[in-house]
Computed example of a mutant assay.
Amino acid sequence: MSGRDKQQRFQRTPGKGQSRPRGGAPAWRERRERPDGPAILYGWHTVAAALANPRRRIRKLLLTENAARRLSDENIDTRVPPEIVRPHLLDARLGPDAVHQGFLAEADPLTAPELGALPREGIVLVLDQITDPHNVGAIMRSAAAFAVNAIVTTARHSPEATGVLAKSASGALELVPLVSVQNLARALSELHDTGFLTVGLDSEGSADLGSVELRQPLALVLGAEGKGLRQLTRQTCSVVARLDMPGAIKSLNVSNAAVLALYIGASRLGLMK
Rank of each mutant, 00 (worst) to 15 (best):
K6C: 06
R12F: 02
T13M: 11
P14F: 07
G15Y: 05
G15A: 09
Q18A: 10
Q18V: 06
S19D: 14
G24R: 15
P26Q: 00
P26C: 00
A27K: 11
W28I: 00
R29V: 07
R32H: 12
P35D: 09
D36S: 14
A39E: 14
L41Q: 08
Y42R: 04
W44V: 13
T46H: 07
A49E: 13
R56Y: 01
I58Y: 06
R59D: 13
L63R: 07
L63K: 08
T64Y: 09
T64C: 11
R69P: 01
R70A: 15
S72V: 05
N75A: 15
P82R: 12
R86F: 03
P87C: 06
P87Y: 05
L89T: 11
R93N: 08
G95C: 03
D97E: 15
D97L: 10
V99T: 10
H100M: 08
F103K: 11
F103P: 13
L104D: 07
A105P: 13
D108E: 15
T111C: 12
T111N: 13
A112T: 05
A117Q: 14
G122D: 08
V124K: 03
L125H: 07
D128W: 01
Q129P: 01
I130P: 00
T131V: 13
H134G: 15
V136Y: 10
G137Y: 00
I139Y: 00
R141M: 01
A143N: 04
N149S: 13
V152D: 06
T154S: 12
A155E: 15
A155H: 10
R156K: 14
S158D: 04
L165Q: 02
A166Q: 13
A169K: 09
G171Q: 06
L173G: 13
E174D: 15
E174P: 09
P177G: 03
V181I: 11
L184R: 04
A185F: 02
S189C: 07
S189P: 00
S189G: 15
L191W: 03
L191N: 09
L191G: 09
L191V: 06
H192G: 14
F196G: 04
L197F: 02
L197N: 01
L197G: 01
L197E: 03
V199L: 02
E204W: 03
S206W: 08
L209T: 00
S211V: 14
V212I: 10
E213Q: 15
L214F: 02
A219P: 05
E225T: 06
G226Y: 09
G228F: 00
L229D: 06
Q231R: 15
A248I: 12
I249R: 14
S251T: 15
S251P: 06
N256H: 05
I264N: 07
A266H: 08
